[in-house]
Design a protein around this nucleic acid. Structure first.
Lengths: 200, 200
DNA sequence: GGCGCTATTGAAAAAACGTCAATAGAATGG
DNA sequence: CCATTCTATTGACGTTTTTTCAATAGCGCC
């Protein structure tokens, strides 16, 4: 008959990731207050109550979604281990770009959550950013040096903001710029910017 | 006596700007879904209904607040008219920095609204950014040339993202970097980045 | 001092968020 | 193959927040 609803019972892990994946997808097009728990529950084929059982409240769910997206980004853009600083930088940017291209929904819900949301969200975002920049400069600095001064940190941080903006802009509208051009530009930008900072 | 509430009747313009100014202030510390119309109305000394009379619904109010902040930013960072490209660039950055320092609340509610919010919000933010970058390169380009190619636009846009990030970071925590150091860094960064772009 | 315009209110409906005891899959043991 | 137990899941209910709208009251004008 119509409306025969057999509830499907999953393991907590399965259900949790199902809801997080769905959240990532839905939050890539709407903002968080344009997404009602009602819609989410219907889309997932569950009751509202279940979402609260897993995440407590809406804000906590949103935070979990953003963290989920961030973890995915960090995991999938593994740090390059071979080559000099330049090569590692280039490979790191390529991996980052590839991730944004292949996982636009997840990336967008991460970016959206970060700026608009709470303090906790911004921390998650900063972690993700740090994972992209720090890993290149952790160890030896063969290729070019980055002095560890407040101004240099401002520059590197600013460069990361530039890279994020440029990558997203390009993915959303790549007309007129090739992938290699973009990567070369971003790779060249960092040493070029660092060079303008006084050594000490 | 206690609770004597004489309603104060303002002109629509006065009330509108009162509510927008208040909204800017309140939205600099909370996110939009942490701000109830109830609190806003109480803080403004009006009824909830009046806010809906003026703005229709909460989302529209939020958008109006963000637009208000953006207009303020654009107006208060007037374009410099004298000097060569370098001097104009430096003056423009100084005006921008001064605005963020003196008007942190308004700037924060603008930034917060843009990333988290709807499509309309992002457009407002892009307008504000364009107003800051375009005006420096509108007319003559004495000092350094910026070829009008897709890649160059990506670079300039990225530079703006870097400037926004660096300025906000510095204002929130200026330890170790002087104002002039920051301004010089940002001013030097643009031509340095542009130089890495092929002329044609 | 009364009159009309409209800015403003307050109560009540609608929608969204959050809670919790009751329900029913699925595995386990007999 | 049935009964039992465990717990993932539900659905109804209470609370908070948003939104609507007819009634109210400040303020200028005659």
């Amino acid at each position: 008959m119509a409306g025969v609803t057999t509830r499907t019972r999953l393991s907590p892990d399965q259900r949790r990731t199902q809801l997080l994946d769905l959240g990532v997808r839905l939050l890539s097009t709407r903002s968080v207050d344009e997404l009602s728990i009602d819609l989410l529950a219907e889309e997932a084929g569950i009751s509202r109550g279940l979402l609260y059982h897993y995440f407590g409240n809406k804000a906590a769910f949103h935070e979990a979604v953003v963290r989920h997206a961030a973890d995915d980004l960090i995991a999938q853009t593994a740090p390059p281990t071979s080559g000099d600083a330049f090569e590692r930088l280039h490979a790191s940017m390529a991996a980052y770009l590839a991730y944004v291209e292949q996982n636009l929904a997840g990336y967008l819900s991460l970016v959206r959550g970060s700026a608009g949301g709470s303090e906790a969200m911004r921390e998650i975002y900063d972690e993700a950013r740090a994972a992209l920049t720090d890993r290149v400069f952790d160890d030896e600095h063969d290729g070019f040096r980055v002095p560890d001064t407040p101004l240099a940190r401002l520059v590197v941080r600013g460069w990361a903001a530039m890279a994020e903006d440029a990558v997203l802009s390009w993915v959303l509208d790549p007309t007129g710029v090739s992938r290699e051009q973009l990567l070369d530009m971003l790779t060249a930008a960092l040493p070029s910017l660092v060079a303008t900072v006084p050594e000490q």
